[in-house]
Design a binder for these strands. Structure first.
Lengths: 138, 138
DNA sequence: ACATGTAATGCAACAATGTTGCAAATATAA
DNA sequence: TTATATTTGCAACATTGTTGCATTACATGT
């Protein structure tokens, strides 16, 4: 099992408390998490500004990525080592329980862009119900 | 050419000034527009709350749709009458000039969802450069 | 283990965006 | 033209994102 410190080292980042806290939060969870979900029981542990700046640092270094949902809320997840051609980032968002899953490698996308347009990345959010919520709701 | 009033009538909505203003803004423009882009020269014409509430009303009635970009900014566009099977909403966002285009019917998407998951809609944002910006930037 | 320079943090203050309740104004149907 | 339900504007507030700067913590040399 890889540790937060190892992940940070690999990117030449210092192993600070806030960085380790966030990475460990994501390592212990297969879902994407929001700022508040990450903070969990200890919302005062780090200053809000530090938290934001740390998330930005981790995103810029390629350790995590940000998922912006249709309701303007934001979640974060660790990057998989998986790379695909058109830089396709797909996620599922359960409208009922608000859970977000990464759908790495399980999606395909094609687009006919207007002439001379250049794509740098594709961000997909599937909105719907997860298995649990689908069964509860009928 | 269809008018704002006709669009509102069809959805049993009153033809109020703010609604007509927004719909006309979008009718006169093939791009998706942000709140500030819609307000344009007259940002004080309507109260900000009215603007928000009107956008929500228009979205709920199916006249417009909201596009949430990766940088958390939001744009709005008229709904086309076009419907597709998996309820796929695709847009292109130019990272340079910030322009957003609807890519109606020009995209294809497939996903293998986990068992029993239900999809209600798919939202795609392609980030990149539009033709103009791609040529300027080289 | 310790001193050192650099990088990260916390604080204060602020900007932007989104939301609610309520009284006044307005659109439509009679 | 009037009645009535709907929409609007205002005030106040909540949430989220951002900046500058002094303080603190990290990692590297010794």
């Amino acid at each position: 099992m890889i540790t937060a410190e190892q992940i940070l080292r690999k990117q030449d980042l210092r192993g600070t408390a806030c960085r380790k806290f966030i990475i460990n939060g994501l390592l212990n969870n297969d879902k994407a998490l929001s700022e508040n979900e990450l903070k969990g029981e200890s919302p005062e542990l780090f200053d809000r500004v530090t938290f934001y700046r740390t998330l930005i640092t981790l995103e810029e270094s390629g350790i995590i990525h940000k998922i912006v949902l249709n309701d303007n809320s934001v979640k974060y997840a660790l990057n998989s080592h998986h790379h695909n051609e058109n830089n396709l980032h797909s996620h599922f968002h359960c409208e009922e329980c608000d859970e977000v899953l990464c759908l790495e490698g399980k999606t395909r996308f094609e687009a006919e862009l207007p002439d001379k347009f250049v794509s740098h990345g594709v961000f997909v959010v599937i909105e719907g119900f997860c298995a649990d919520c689908a069964s509860h709701i009928k």
